[in-house]
Design a protein around this nucleic acid. Structure first.
Lengths: 209, 209
DNA sequence: ACCGCTATCTACATTGGTGTCAATAAGGAA
DNA sequence: TTCCTTATTGACACCAATGTAGATAGCGGT
């Protein structure tokens, strides 16, 4: 029995006009909706039906552009990673004062929601895959610049400093307001905290010898 | 038409023996399997069918004990939170040297997978709910002890120290090996890092005045 | 041995999400 | 205009997971 597919015939409801976008536009619109849903609804919100509804098109179109759900999620992850890198590079180039750089990094990680992205990828990818080359190159650059700015030569010390900064930024971004709430503060001033941390790291260098 | 349910009649396959557990045992076995699946498969692994299979019983039994899937997940979150608190309290009581305490905290957060739990809850709960009283009490105690051990009175300084320690521990636990890999190290020695951090925080106190 | 409670099971109904397919229409090119 | 490409869509089949209900069986109490 061939399934008789309803063709044009009986559509009494006036067919609503279609909006034809370029593939780039469509992908952009879809990923915008997906990113908003990730922020608002969490991981469960990243399904093609919901994303398509928010984006204003059918879920079949989403699959058409990304192949399948996994493709959509991967594309979103890549786009957000690129945004993270862009923000970090901008923070590094913006200023020459270590305090300002730290503040910019914290702002990017915490305010921009990048930390949640990292956590999401860490939780989803069962085997934490190696970071892509772009990220690795960025960190090479970061290590070099840090060595310059902070005037430190000891590789281990630089690594510890960077590890502390990065892990703290990630932890702050993920915990959100929960951690400050535990410590009895309503909200944390990232600039102030970054300032304090910068002083802590710098002053340690010149510990009275 | 009443659905004639197949009763005992036609079962040619020998009925396999049931294992009757106490409710506590059953819940424990189920949550063990759920926790293992969370570690191995990530968030997607926390479904009743998969958990039931790993636990060695039917998914209907899981629903019987926890009401529904959300109940099972909540129970798991609560049990893991209790374990986290227990580990942290143990770390605080274990030793009097700040370095040892820090190392124990890092070990609990990173090695025990507690950080991933926190990230999971942060990502899932759309509105980050306030931490329960037990956690709040623990942190009050933590603040007090820290003030004693580190010999610091300034509240802001204590808060910054704690914030740095906690956020860094969370960030390290989540990023796993990815972050050290970026910095060119295969693995991070938590003890060594904790030692360095403790010295950093303590030495800052006695900055040459 | 008998009985009552309930943990456990199998089977089923239902839902929600995924991916496919053929038809349609929007825009550009000739 | 006419034609062609393809973005878009509704409908459908499928699957995985959830939750329900009745039947069954293990275990303790009497």
């Amino acid at each position: 029995m061939t399934t008789t597919r309803t063709t044009s015939a009986g559509s009494r409801t006036a067919a609503k006009p279609r909006k034809r976008r370029t593939p780039e536009e469509a992908r952009s619109v879809i990923l915008d909706a997906a990113e908003a849903r990730l922020q608002k609804l969490g991981l469960e919100g990243l399904n093609v039906v919901g994303v398509a509804e928010d984006a204003g098109l059918s879920h079949a179109s989403v699959i058409h552009h990304f192949g399948n759900t996994a493709g959509m999620r991967q594309a979103l992850g890549e786009r957000m990673t690129q945004a993270l890198l862009s923000d970090l590079v901008g923070a590094l180039k913006s200023d020459t004062q270590p305090q300002k750089i730290l503040a910019a990094v914290f702002h990017a990680m915490v305010g921009g929601g990048h930390a949640k992205l990292l956590a999401w990828r860490a939780l989803n990818d069962s085997d934490s895959e190696l970071p892509d080359e772009a990220v690795q190159r960025l960190f090479k650059e970061l290590i070099r610049r840090t060595g310059e700015r902070f005037g430190q030569q000891d590789a281990t010390l630089i690594r510890n400093n960077l590890l502390l900064i990065a892990s703290s930024a990630i932890g702050l971004g993920i915990s959100g307001n929960a951690l400050p709430a535990l410590l009895g503060v309503d909200e944390i001033d990232n600039n102030e905290f970054a300032d304090w941390l910068a002083h802590l790291l710098l002053d340690d260098d010149k510990t009275c010898t």
